[in-house]
Design a protein around this nucleic acid. Structure first.
Lengths: 221, 221
DNA sequence: TGACTAACGTACTGGTTCGTACATTAGTCG
DNA sequence: CGACTAATGTACGAACCAGTACGTTAGTCA
C-alpha cells in the first residue's frame, strides 16, 4: 500500500488534489479495515486526514464509493506483486512453491487487505460487482499457475487432475485463513497462527501441502 | 441451528420465556450474519420476532451481549456435531478423511456460522474473549485428530512432523474459505466455489490434499 | 493582472438507532 | 382467590452520523 508523501513543504497548506485523494484513501483503508463498512465513520476518516469531510464527498461521492475505491487500490497492490513474479527459470515444483510463498508473504504483510476482503464478502461482493476497474483486473497468477501445471504434467511430475483455479483457491485458503481467522482461532485453540516464531513453519507447510497434493498418486475421478 | 417451535397452540399468545428467548436468538443469528455487527439493527430483529425490542434487552441486556449469545449457540452446534463423530473403527486414512468431510459438510450447511466467525474476527474475537461459555468449550476434534495422527504414525502411514492443531487449521482453511470468500472469489475468478455441481469435487479434493500431505515423504525440518 | 475554475472549509440538518422509563398482564403459589 | 413476580408492550429521548447548502481561497491562463 503506497503511502502519502510528507507534509508538503514546511507547514504551508498547498493545494494538491492527488495528495489529498491519496491521503483520504490511506486513512479510509485503515478505518474500513478496522471497523468494517458499517462500523467505519466518515467523520473519523475526515478527522484523521489533513482535510475535511467535504473533500471525501468531493472526490469520492460517498461512503459506498469510497469503500469501492479502497478495494480497488488494495486489489491493485496484490495484482502488481503478482505481475512482478518471475518463475520461468524454475522447475515446476520450485515454481509452485515460489508462487505459494508470494501469496503467503503478501497476505501476512497486508492484514488490512485481508480484512477488507472479509468485509466485502459479508456484503456479498457488491462493490466489486459495481466496479469496472475490478471487473477488468484479471489475475496474472492464474496464467502463471496454468503454465506451471502444464509443464509439470508434461514432465510427469504432477498428476493430471489439478486445475489452476482450484489450486489458486487451495493456496489462498491457507494463507487467508491464517491471517483472517487468527483471532477466533487463537482464542479457541490457544495458538497464534501469525506468531513470528512459527512463520517459517507455516510457510514450509503450505508448500509441502501443495506439492504433496500435486505429486501424489490417486484414483482418477 | 435448532429452530423455534410452532406458533404455540392456536393463535392465543402464551407467555413462554424459553420460546421467546430462542426466537430472538434465531432471528438475531440471521440478522447479524446478514449485515455484520454494526450493520445489524436491533429494531429489525425485534420486528421479525413475535415479541418486541424490549424483550431483547430484558433477556440479553444489549446488542453486544446478544451477539455473544448468538456466537455461543453457533459454536455449540458445531461442537455437538464434532462430538457425535465416531471414527474409532476406521483406519487412519479413512478416519482423517471422515473428519475433514465433517467440517466440509458443516461449513457448507451453516453459511451463517461462517459469516458470524468472519464478523467476530473483524472484531478481533472480543466477544469470544468475554464469554466464559466459549472459553470453557474446548474442541473435541483436536483430541480425535491427535489420536488418529498417533495411530497413523505408529503404523508408518503418516509422516512424523504433522501437528494436530496445524492439521485442524489446514482442514478449516479450505472449508472456511470456500464458503466465506465465495463472493469475491466468484466475482474475480468467475467460479462459484459452492456450486452444487462441484461439491463432490471439492469434497474429494480436500481429502486428497490432507492425505497427500500426511503421507508424503519430505525432508525433516 | 484579472477572471475563471478547481480545491477547499464551515456549519448544519434530517433521519436513524440504541437504549429506557413507564405501564400492564399472565401465571403461580400460599 | 388474592398477592406477588416474571414476562411483556408502548412510547419516547438523546446521541449519532451520512450527506449537503453555502461560502471562500489558491492556482492558472488569456
Amino acid at each position: 500500500m503506497t503511502s502519502v508523501d510528507e507534509p508538503a513543504r514546511s507547514g504551508a497548506r498547498t493545494r494538491d488534489a492527488a495528495r489529498t485523494r491519496a491521503e483520504i484513501l490511506d486513512v479510509a483503508t485503515r478505518e474500513f479495515a478496522r471497523a468494517g463498512y458499517d462500523g467505519a465513520r466518515v467523520d473519523e476518516i475526515a478527522a484523521r486526514t489533513r482535510t475535511t469531510k467535504r473533500m471525501i464527498y468531493y472526490y469520492f461521492g460517498g461512503k459506498e464509493r469510497l469503500f469501492t475505491a479502497v478495494l480497488e487500490r488494495a486489489y491493485g497492490v496484490i495484482r502488481e506483486a503478482e505481475q512482478r513474479l518471475d518463475v520461468d527459470h524454475l522447475d515446476p515444483v520450485a515454481a509452485i512453491r515460489r508462487l505459494a510463498e508470494l501469496t503467503f508473504d503478501h497476505h501476512e504483510e497486508h492484514p488490512d487487505f485481508i480484512r477488507l476482503v472479509s468485509i466485502e464478502n459479508i456484503h456479498e461482493a457488491e462493490h466489486i460487482a459495481s466496479s469496472e476497474t475490478l471487473a477488468r483486473m484479471g489475475s496474472p497468477t492464474l496464467d502463471v499457475i496454468r503454465r506451471i501445471l502444464a509443464e509439470g504434467r508434461r514432465s510427469g511430475l504432477f498428476t493430471a487432475d489439478a486445475d489452476a483455479v482450484d489450486l489458486h483457491a487451495m493456496i489462498s485458503s491457507f494463507c487467508f485463513f491464517r491471517v483472517a481467522n487468527r483471532h477466533t482461532f487463537g482464542a479457541l485453540f490457544g495458538r497464534d497462527l501469525v506468531d513470528p516464531a512459527r512463520r517459517a513453519h507455516y510457510r514450509t507447510m503450505l508448500g509441502d501441502m501443495v506439492i504433496a497434493y500435486l505429486t501424489a498418486e490417486r484414483a482418477q475421478d
